[in-house]
């Protein structure tokens, strides 16, 4: 595909490559660090990790989810939700919830990676459930197919998350968040576990391979430069109409006023 990919080689993109490179180094450093940490953890006693997780859980989660994660009136049971669900909810900052009146929103995570892993290990120890994944395990860049991913996205995701993954409204003030800027592993875990209002897309409904394709398409949409000018939020004709009235007609009326005033 010449149109999209060739621009990267151009001289104008130099500063970007530099920036992207720096970003990449930064991310891989963080990832490497996390990997080495988990390696350390693996060697340590698994039971310690679970115990640690249980302790964090008792402090931060049990007030809503119950002391043994059995759930209570306001919060669901976590038995059997698996490490994937914990990783998604905690690492994206959705849990613990800041405000019970709204749906859980993405925000700065409260727990660090180690604590998240401990929590996940604890919840996973209660009953088997989907395991958490890492970005490296996914290898979506190699195994995904963008075009197929786009079709799957439009069939399974666009109705809530909008055609370009910008998010959309649900009933009674709930909303489907944007999927732009979300870690691939969190997208994967969300499809697997169905957080909050989102339904579950099991591996038979969307095969792991198909999930990777969806991630690849989302990442493509996220990085696609503006092909036709300012994107206007990628939310369809509403912002276009607004711009036509304000900037378009506004400019023209401005010119018309100038045109019909007498020169001095």
């Amino acid at each position: 595909m010449r149109f999209i990919s060739r621009y990267r080689r151009h001289r104008f993109a130099g500063p970007f490559l530099l920036l992207a490179g720096l970003l990449f180094v930064g991310i891989s450093y963080t990832v490497a660090q996390a990997a080495s940490e988990s390696a350390v953890l693996n060697t340590s006693d698994k039971a310690t990790l679970i115990a640690e997780g249980k302790e964090i859980f008792a402090r931060g989660c049990s007030s809503c989810h119950g002391l043994n994660a059995e759930g209570a009136g306001i919060a669901p049971s976590l038995i059997g939700v698996g490490a994937a669900s914990v990783d998604f909810q905690v690492a994206t900052g959705r849990m613990p919830m800041a405000d019970m009146s709204h749906q859980a929103m993405r925000k700065e995570p409260v727990y660090n990676e180690e604590e998240t892993a401990a929590l996940a290990a604890y919840v996973a120890s209660l009953a088997p459930g989907p395991a958490a994944v890492t970005n490296e395990e996914l290898a979506w860049e190699r195994s995904g197919d963008t075009a197929e991913g786009g079709e799957l996205f439009r069939n399974n995701c666009a109705m809530c998350h909008n055609f370009a993954g910008q998010g959309g409204a649900l009933t009674q003030g709930k909303y489907a968040p944007t999927v732009m800027g979300v870690e691939p592993k969190h997208i994967y875990e969300a499809m697997l576990t169905g957080p909050q209002a989102m339904p579950v897309f099991s591996d038979s409904v969307l095969t792991p391979q198909e999930k990777l394709s969806i991630i690849k398409w989302i990442k493509h949409a996220e990085n696609e430069p503006a092909l036709g000018g300012a994107a206007l939020g990628r939310v369809g004709p509403v912002t276009e109409g607004l711009l036509a009235w304000t900037l378009g007609l506004g400019l023209l009326i401005g010119v018309a006023v100038w045109l019909t005033t007498k020169a001095r």
Partner: peptide
Amino acid sequence: GAFASINPLWLYGPYTPGQISAGSQPDW
């Protein structure tokens, strides 16, 4: 036309009656 993208239909994908996007609106 130069500065503001309008109807980026490559993102919408081809029509099939089984698909839909959140926020499907007509022009103003």
